[in-house]
Design a protein around this nucleic acid. Sequence first.
DNA 1: ACTATTTCCTGGATGC
DNA 2: TGCATCCAGGAAATAG
Length: 292
Amino acid sequence: MPELPEVETIVQGLKKHVAGDAIESVWIGSKKQPLKSPAAIIAATLEGRRIVRVHRAGKHIVFDLVGESRTGGAKGATRSKAQRSASSDTAQWIVHLGMTGHMTVSDPAAEIAKHTHLIAKLASGRELRFIDPRMFGKLSVHLHARDAGGFDPGGIEPLEATEEQFIALFRRRKTPIKSALLNQKLLRGVGNIYADESLFRAGIRPRRKAASLTRTQLVKLHRAVQEVLREAIALGGSSISDYVGVDGEEGFFQLRHRVYGREGEPCLACQAPIRRIVLAGRSSHYCAKCQK
DNA sequence: ACTATTTCCTGGATGC
DNA sequence: TGCATCCAGGAAATAG
């Protein structure tokens, strides 16, 4: 399940493979799709534009697009709203992979996988495809004026957050710290696995109210979150099952989880059995001896 | 204004 | 073996 490190890795791959390429045409699956923007607007926005940059915002993949889109040259007052907005000179394509979403850069002759929702034909002759069996992923486009800021999902990047910014996010929250870590409007990019791993490294139980944590603990947590994310990025992102790389290869070398998915197994630090509780509807794993 | 819970969805694992 | 049930979880929607 792609969290920040996985998305970062995917973005690096996409950057390598499709940056500079142009989108010639777009096919969007006919059945109901994981779209946030209407299919017609997505297609009209992408077609005819060139991908100038691929970057990440939290768990979102952001393609910066330039150029006149398919409808950019249309004249007169008869253009639809979709056409007008799609012809805006600055556009972004936003992809959220959800749980099971993945992207591939494929030869057009390659078999179209089940649950393929979008295929973008590229000028280079290849196809950029979006596949998502469980449809928790989301596709959208963001149009804005040239001098506007562009897509912003809210929250701050955990790897860019200073100690003070990090502490300020949590010090007054009454919610459990695990829930706060998962709140993308605070910190963006941390998901269930890295939240559990970070809390373990910081020695904090997931149910602890954020506001009850001492400054020292928050400092420790800040460091733990950054450490875990950096290690995972260095390993190319970790994944349980649903990642398919840009090149089509399956899976990543997995960061060794110290608590996630290890219910009943001995804590790697003290041998006490790892516990599993449900918090905010998510399974949460911790060591009762190491985490307070 | 916040926080907590439910919902969406499919495939893989589990159980009888 | 086969079928039903459960479970995974990001984030929007809904409830409290």
